[in-house]
Design a protein around this nucleic acid. Structure first.
Lengths: 158, 158
DNA sequence: TATTGTTATACTCTATAACTATA
DNA sequence: TATAGTTATAGAGTATAACAATA
């Protein structure tokens, strides 16, 4: 958290400034290690970008999935996001308690529930998306447009 | 875990197979989101690669830093790896208990300890490094050598 | 005063097992 | 039998505060 900048400065001051006398050559050349460092820095900046909204990253991702799939079943959201069923239950109850989404029993399959965004949920998602766009702009500020596309292409290829 | 392959198959079956009927367009175009997915998949494969050694990723990274910096102080390791001092204490005690490293009080600064790998620690690190090389080969199998270099370059630039 | 290392603690995320009600 | 959702629980990772010893 302390090494993350919210202004237009480097996202990662990790290996530039951190303990300059300590060698970390092996780790630095591991793609997986760098990926985790960068991913953690993104997550910290993402969480900071949500400050004031009361939303955590996983909550925003759920709203986004419901927005693009109105009426989607709870289990489907979890599968799409990689969140275990057992962990979806309290997450959904929390978002329902915040009046951001509604869970309506599915009449065809009475075990399941269909999920919809409320007006509040739509407004919250819109607010969060604007913050996320600013977050991406900050965190990818050092890359050209072409480099960003390359990065996404390589990540999608892995 | 269940979607991660340890053979020479795709590391990520995430958005290819997962809930094909659920749209996740907004999230898919966020670099931060894809970074996290890929990073998590790497971590899962990494952890799986360590099976049988009794080592977790953070423990291997500590051994690696001590190996490249014999006599380094405990706090320096934590700073280099982004692990808080408070969390380094039990980690180091654990590795010392496994006889993989030694902590020798620093005579110049008696608050500090200098850390060294034992013979066991050196052997363990060698074993883990071999597993990590195989892990990187698996996880980056879909990328050409040139693409791997580009990926590392872009990650380092962020 | 500041720093090294320690302890205690708490919060989030993740993972598993067992339960219900439906199918 | 299998599936949707729930509950309880446990583990790892991470964060802060307070402390003792030393600088």
């Amino acid at each position: 958290m302390s090494v993350i900048s919210v202004e237009n400065k480097p996202v990662l001051q990790l290996l530039d400034d951190r303990s300059p006398d300590v060698r970390t050559e092996f780790l630095n050349n591991l793609a997986g290690y760098r990926l985790r460092q960068v991913s953690n820095a993104f997550m910290s900046d993402f969480a900071a970008a949500m400050t004031g909204t009361g939303m955590r990253p996983v909550q925003v991702s759920i709203l986004s999935v419901v927005d693009e799939n109105p009426g989607v079943r709870q289990g489907e959201i979890g599968r799409a996001l990689g969140v275990a069923r057992a962990n979806m239950a309290p997450l959904m109850a929390e978002l329902e308690g915040m009046k951001l989404l509604e869970r309506i029993p599915d009449e065809a399959d009475r075990r399941a529930v269909s999920v919809f965004l409320t007006k509040s949920g739509q407004a919250m998602l819109k607010n969060c998306k604007a913050r996320i766009r600013a977050h991406e702009h900050r965190t990818l500020g050092r890359l050209t447009e072409s480099e960003r596309k390359t990065l996404l292409r390589l990540l999608n290829k892995i």
